[in-house]
């Protein structure tokens, strides 16, 4: 039962949205809507699972005074304060201190962290990108055209031709390749999802359940 019941539930609950998609009856769509709300709640409960693991590993690091343990204190302090004010929101929405910390701490940290990647991606590209063959040259040319197409300097150099060319690359050959990737990935994902519903794929149940 410990093994069969989860597989049976996965099958029944997994088939329901498919059933609801093909059966446009009010009762079915209402039940599906209800199930959707319920599962959003279950998903919300799943988030702290990651938090528990993160807090556990950082507390262990602090207890054992492992290398870089003071940074674990910073991490836990940031997590506790932000989560505390996040939970303390009321009928009027988020707590003002939560919004203040988001605007003055989380948002700039995130933007700066991502902007830092510009340097590293550019320097890695400088070392890795070489027009060694036709494929690499095509990639390089597309990247340069798109980059120049995003700034006024590109249009200044080419008499206004760079932006339309960049747009053409984005909306025609790029869209075609992206569409191919999306269709291919969707076919792969759909086949995996069918395997999960049918109980062929069981790794999500954990070790020893496959």
């Amino acid at each position: 039962m410990r093994r069969t019941l989860p597989l049976f539930l996965t099958f029944v609950v997994g088939m329901f949205p498919i059933f609801a998609f093909f059966v446009p009856h009010r009762a079915v769509s209402d039940l599906n809507q209800q199930l959707d709300t319920w599962l959003v709640i279950v998903a919300a409960f799943a988030l702290p699972l990651g938090v528990v693991n993160l807090v556990g590993s950082n507390i262990t690091k602090i207890k054992r005074k492992q290398k870089g343990w003071p940074y674990s204190i910073v991490l836990l302090a940031g997590l506790s304060v932000m989560a505390f004010y996040g939970i303390m929101g009321g009928e009027q929405g988020f707590h003002p201190k939560f919004q203040y910390m988001f605007v003055n701490m989380v948002s700039p940290l995130q933007a700066t962290m991502f902007s830092l990647l510009a340097f590293y991606v550019a320097s890695a590209a400088y070392r890795a990108f070489r027009a060694r063959n036709i494929e690499a040259t095509v990639l390089l040319a597309a990247a340069i055209i798109v980059m120049l197409g995003r700034i006024p300097f590109g249009d200044m150099l080419t008499g206004g031709r760079m932006t339309p060319l960049s747009e053409w690359i984005m909306t025609k050959p790029n869209a075609a390749a992206q569409r191919g990737i999306i269709i291919g990935a969707a076919l792969g994902a759909a086949s995996m999802q069918i395997r999960v519903i049918l109980g062929i794929e069981r790794t999500y149940l954990g070790k020893g359940q496959e």
Partner: peptide, 23 residues
């Protein structure tokens, strides 16, 4: 390293707040 750790902790705290408030 200080800012990186603070960012990791606060980002997770932020998602806890968002999930609590919006869900």
């Amino acid at each position: 390293r200080f800012a990186e750790s603070l960012f990791a902790g606060m980002s997770l705290g932020y998602y806890i707040g968002i999930v609590t408030e919006n869900t």
